[in-house]
């Protein structure tokens, strides 16, 4: 044991202490860079300003994705300290989802649940997934890198929080492209995309972040 301790002491080098606030700023900057790049490469919806931004659905989508991203990031970053836990943040994320779905349901009661086949076309839904999931990957890589550098003690929970935060941001970016203004479409297909990203994170991140 003495040789072992001597080995650890001999290996000691000064370290830069982890600063969650700095990590939050770096994450925010990377997320903003993705959004800027996405919009600068002409991916915004054509009638974004004239039509989309005048509908309550657009602002509902944007606010939901933004707030859920913040909750997810807070849960993930606070759990990178061994004594931290993502559980409260995950519960808050779940509550946030329910609240935003209720608000979404309140946006357009006029159609109710009628004409579902026309309102939830599979091809459009898959098209939505083909944007949302890839857009979530850059933020997921960034959060995964921080998770690997940190010391999460609840690896599945932290991985899930990273996945939800990344999916939230992917959704936020996609809102500027998404041509669908029907809250029912959003309430069905966006959560599917979030679920896929969260599942991916839950399966992969614990494997690369064990310590």
């Amino acid at each position: 044991m003495d040789d072992f301790m001597a080995g650890l002491v001999a290996d000691l080098k000064p370290v830069r202490r982890r600063r969650p606030a700095v990590e939050a700023v770096v994450v925010a900057a990377l997320f903003a860079a993705e959004l800027a790049l996405w919009l600068l490469t002409d991916n915004a919806r054509e009638n974004l300003v004239q039509v989309a931004m005048t509908t309550p659905t657009f602002w509902w989508k944007l606010a939901s994705a933004g707030v859920l991203t913040v909750i997810g990031c807070a849960a993930a970053l606070s759990s990178l300290n061994p004594a931290g836990s993502p559980r409260r943040g995950l519960v808050a994320f779940g509550v946030g989802c329910i609240v935003f779905l209720i608000i979404g349901a309140g946006l357009d009661w006029s159609l109710g649940l009628t004409n579902l086949a026309a309102r939830l076309p599979l091809s459009a839904g898959l098209d939505c997934l083909s944007y949302l999931v890839p857009l979530s990957l850059p933020p997921l890589v960034a959060l995964g890198f921080l998770m690997r550098r940190g010391a999460a003690t609840d690896l599945p929970g932290t991985a899930l929080a990273c996945g939800l935060a990344a999916a939230g941001w992917g959704a936020f970016v996609f809102v500027f492209t998404c041509p669908h203004d029907d809250p029912l479409f959003v309430a069905i297909w966006y959560p599917v995309a979030v679920g896929i990203t969260a599942l991916l994170a839950r399966l992969v991140l614990p494997l690369v972040s064990r310590w």
């Binding site: 301790m5 202490r17 061994p82 010391a151 003690t153 310590w211």
Partner: peptide, 30 residues
């Protein structure tokens, strides 16, 4: 021994404004 190695590798995650034992106990429990 395993835990001492973990402490060594993750020492940058300790925030000196917070209780050390809570940090240590969390790693030991993990």
């Amino acid at each position: 021994q395993d835990t001492l190695i973990a402490i060594h590798q993750k020492r940058h995650t300790y925030d000196s404004s917070r209780p050390f034992v809570a940090w240590l106990a969390a790693i030991a429990r993990y």
